[in-house]
Amino acid sequence: MDVTTARERLEFMLAELDRSIGVLRGDPVAVRDRSTADAGSDLTDADRAQAMLTVATTQRHAVIEAIKRIEEGVYGRCVDCREPVPAGRLEARPEAARCVQCQGKRERRR
C-alpha cells in the first residue's frame, strides 16, 4: 500500500475511533427507579462499554503511532527487526507496527 493511501486510511480510522470513544465516554444515564436485576444488567453494560473503550483507546494509540511512522519515513518497516511489513498485513491492518514473525514473538511473551 502506498503511503498516501495508508495515511488516508489511518486518518479515517482515527476519526472513527475518536467518534466511538466519545460515544463510549458519554454522559452517565440519569438514575431512575429500577429493579435489582436491571441494576445488574446496567453493570454488565458498563463493563462491556469499558472493555470497548479500552480496545478503542489502544487502537487509537496504534493509529497515531502509525501516522508518526509515516511522518518519520519508516512506515511499512517492522519496529523490531526493521524488515518490511508484508503488504497484505498493512492492507488488513494499516496501523501494524510489526511483521508477522515479530508480532507473534511479542504475543507469546505476554
Rank of each mutant, 00 (worst) to 15 (best):
residue 20 S to W: 07
residue 87 A to R: 12
residue 77 R to K: 06
residue 13 M to C: 05
residue 88 G to N: 10
residue 110 R to E: 00
residue 5 T to C: 02
residue 22 G to M: 12
residue 86 P to K: 04
residue 91 E to P: 05
residue 2 D to C: 12
residue 16 E to V: 02
residue 64 I to Q: 06
residue 6 A to P: 01
residue 90 L to I: 06
residue 91 E to Y: 06
residue 23 V to H: 10
residue 48 R to V: 12
residue 82 R to I: 04
residue 107 E to F: 12
residue 66 A to M: 11
residue 51 A to I: 05
residue 71 E to R: 15
residue 45 D to L: 15
residue 28 P to S: 07
residue 51 A to C: 04
residue 1 M to H: 10
residue 27 D to S: 15
residue 105 K to T: 00
residue 36 T to M: 13
residue 34 R to A: 14
residue 32 R to M: 03
residue 77 R to W: 03
residue 26 G to H: 12
residue 99 C to K: 00
residue 80 D to P: 00
residue 93 R to C: 04
residue 98 R to W: 05
residue 19 R to H: 08
residue 104 G to D: 06
residue 1 M to G: 14
residue 87 A to Y: 09
residue 33 D to H: 10
residue 89 R to K: 06
residue 33 D to R: 13
residue 13 M to V: 06
residue 76 G to F: 05
residue 5 T to K: 15
residue 23 V to Q: 14
residue 43 L to M: 12
residue 16 E to R: 15
residue 76 G to R: 09
residue 53 L to H: 09
residue 82 R to Q: 11
residue 31 V to Q: 13
residue 21 I to D: 03
residue 104 G to N: 04
residue 16 E to L: 13
residue 61 H to V: 09
residue 76 G to K: 07
residue 47 D to Y: 13
residue 100 V to R: 13
residue 90 L to K: 09
residue 88 G to S: 08
residue 106 R to W: 05
residue 50 Q to K: 06
residue 94 P to T: 06
residue 101 Q to N: 01
residue 99 C to S: 02
residue 54 T to I: 12
residue 39 A to K: 06
residue 72 E to T: 08
residue 106 R to N: 02
residue 12 F to K: 15
residue 49 A to T: 12
residue 101 Q to K: 14
residue 79 V to N: 00
residue 59 Q to F: 11
residue 31 V to Y: 03
residue 35 S to F: 00
residue 8 E to W: 12
residue 110 R to G: 09
residue 50 Q to Y: 03
residue 22 G to N: 07
residue 81 C to V: 01
residue 53 L to K: 07
residue 45 D to E: 14
residue 21 I to Q: 11
